[in-house]
Amino acid sequence: MVKNYMELLVSETLKDIIKDYDICTCDDCINDIKSIALNNLPPVYFLSSIDEGQKKAFLLDRQRKISVLAKVAEAIQIVSNNSHNKGNKKMRESL
């Protein structure tokens, strides 16, 4: 199975920081946040010959985590400003 490791990192980061924000956590908003962040980050796939240690190193890289954190925070801001819960469903659909 092919896996985008950036997607794993975005999901992990969002899970860690979402509690620090006053934002809707419905599935639609969470998926919007992930989508926006992932669209602004490069996808990362590993060859089958890469060992688990290298994959784990990717997920633990400090600079990468900071970059992902910044993109997730930007995505949270975008979604919170355009959330359907603010009566702006049309804007949310365009995200």
Rank of each mutant, 00 (worst) to 15 (best):
M1V: 11
K55E: 12
V68F: 01
S49Q: 09
C26K: 02
N31W: 02
A57E: 14
K56P: 08
L60V: 07
K89L: 15
K15M: 11
H84C: 15
P43G: 03
N4K: 04
D51N: 13
E12I: 11
G87W: 00
L69F: 15
S80C: 01
I17H: 06
Q63H: 14
D51A: 01
P42H: 04
C24F: 03
L47P: 11
F46A: 10
S48M: 08
C26M: 00
K55Q: 15
M91K: 10
T25M: 13
F46G: 09
N40R: 01
H84Y: 06
Q77C: 10
K15G: 06
D61W: 03
V10A: 03
K15A: 10
V72A: 03
A75N: 00
L47A: 13
A57H: 05
V79R: 01
K71M: 14
C29I: 06
D28M: 09
K65W: 03
C26L: 06
C29P: 03
E74L: 05
D20M: 09
K3D: 04
K89Y: 09
S49W: 03
E52V: 11
Y21K: 06
Y45P: 09
I66D: 14
A37K: 00
M91L: 14
K15E: 12
L41I: 03
L41E: 01
K3A: 10
S49R: 03
K90S: 12
I23W: 02
D16C: 10
C29T: 04
K55S: 07
N31D: 13
S80R: 07
S83H: 08
C26E: 07
P42S: 08
Q63A: 13
